[in-house]
Computed example of a mutant assay.
Amino acid sequence: MGQQPNELTPDAGPWHRWGYELRQFREARLLSQQALARRALIDRSHLGRFERAERPVPKHAAITLDDILDAAGALVRGWDSAEREAPRIALSRCPEPGQRLMGPVHGAMGPAPRRPWP
């Protein structure tokens, strides 16, 4: 039995709406994330993060997913719209001034913070 999917929040912003639409197309085709990820040659965890708007979606991934899901360009148009409305950097939690951008949204954790010597 698969994991219970997280509830999506399409009204939270354009990338959340795109992720919601991706899930709707995937579920309409009766595909699991794993099955779609295999077909699209995308890591399953990335696909889940795309759906939850936790990871930037490369345009080539949107094109591939649109093609596999036979979405007739809807996912590509949605990607274009989301890119215009909110750049992909907006997927992350907005950092405080002076705070480093780190975490899965940006793909690297960066160097460990330096600790002052006692």
Rank of each mutant, 00 (worst) to 15 (best):
Met1Leu: 09
Gln3Tyr: 07
Gln3Pro: 02
Gln4Ala: 14
Gln4Pro: 03
Asn6Phe: 04
Asn6Asp: 06
Thr9Asp: 12
Pro10Val: 04
Ala12Glu: 02
His16Trp: 05
Tyr20Trp: 14
Arg23Leu: 02
Arg26Trp: 03
Glu27Phe: 04
Arg29Leu: 10
Leu31Gly: 07
Ser32Asp: 11
Gln34Ile: 09
Ala37Asn: 10
Arg39Thr: 09
Arg39Val: 04
Leu41Thr: 14
Arg44Ser: 09
Arg44Ile: 04
Ser45Val: 14
Ser45Glu: 11
Phe50Thr: 12
Arg52Cys: 10
Glu54Val: 04
Pro58Leu: 15
Pro58Lys: 12
Lys59Met: 10
Lys59Thr: 05
Lys59Gln: 11
His60Gln: 12
His60Lys: 06
Ala61Ser: 13
Ala62Val: 05
Ala62Met: 04
Ile63Lys: 10
Leu65Lys: 02
Leu65Asp: 00
Ile68Trp: 05
Asp70Gln: 14
Arg77Met: 11
Trp79Thr: 12
Trp79Met: 10
Ala82Gly: 12
Glu83Ser: 15
Arg84Gln: 14
Arg84Trp: 05
Glu85Asn: 11
Ile89Pro: 03
Ala90Ser: 15
Cys94Lys: 02
Pro95Asp: 00
Glu96Tyr: 03
Pro97Cys: 02
Leu101Asn: 00
Gly103Cys: 01
Val105Tyr: 01
Val105Ala: 07
His106Cys: 02
Met109Glu: 03
Gly110Arg: 13
Pro111Glu: 10
Ala112Trp: 01
Ala112Cys: 01
Arg114Phe: 01
Pro116Arg: 11
